[in-house]
């Protein structure tokens, strides 16, 4: 976050928190919002793109499909034991393996994407975080220079922040 100070506003109302985000965007300041739940109004105000999760999941799923079929086909060719008069490469039977591997690899890729994109684990870096943000409060953090902190602080209070604190930059 840009600036050597972070102003943390604690909001009791979602619409106030969104108004604070809009104000930060207007001023060209960087911000971060903490929220007890995901909310599509907040998401609309803060996000501009979809994110790459589904793309990464798709790559995982296609890799799984290929790996599942490849495993079954290659193992069968390497040990060509005919059973029940079925073909050695018995595609209908291998669909199950390919199907399960598609889902398995897709899920693992999705988990990997989630962990990387959310920056997890994040045990030691929760600057500006307040335990109330997981209960019923919304937190809006705005990064700015020390000269501007008073102005930002007053603006947040004006919008409806219940508390405002100034911390060192993140």
């Amino acid at each position: 976050m840009k600036g050597n100070r972070v102003v943390v506003g604690v909001f009791g109302y979602l619409d106030d928190a969104i108004a604070a985000v809009e104000a930060a965007k207007q001023e060209g300041l960087e911000y971060k919002v903490y929220s007890p739940v995901p909310n599509h109004h907040l998401d609309d105000a803060t996000s501009t793109d979809r994110g790459p999760v589904r793309f990464i999941s798709g790559i995982g799923a296609v890799t799984g499909l290929t790996a599942g079929f490849a495993l079954a086909i290659m193992c069968s060719l390497d040990y060509p034991l005919r059973t029940s008069a079925k073909a050695i490469v018995s595609v209908p039977g291998f669909v199950v393996i390919g199907y399960e591997c598609t889902i398995l690899f897709g899920a693992i890729a999705t988990l990997t994407a989630l962990v990387l994109l959310c920056g997890l684990p994040n045990v030691l870096r929760n600057a500006g975080y307040d335990p109330r943000f997981s209960r019923d409060k919304f937190g809006v953090l705005i990064g700015c220079d020390s000269r501007k902190t008073e102005e930002v602080k007053n603006r947040l209070l004006e919008i409806g922040a219940e508390e405002v604190e100034v911390e060192d930059g993140l």
Partner: peptide, 19 residues
């Protein structure tokens, strides 16, 4: 895992959960 519910994390979380 140090989850803090910031807006970017929720955005990715929602998308991943749907998938």
């Amino acid at each position: 895992l140090g989850w803090n519910g910031n807006h970017k994390a929720w955005h990715h979380y929602e998308e991943a959960y749907l998938i």
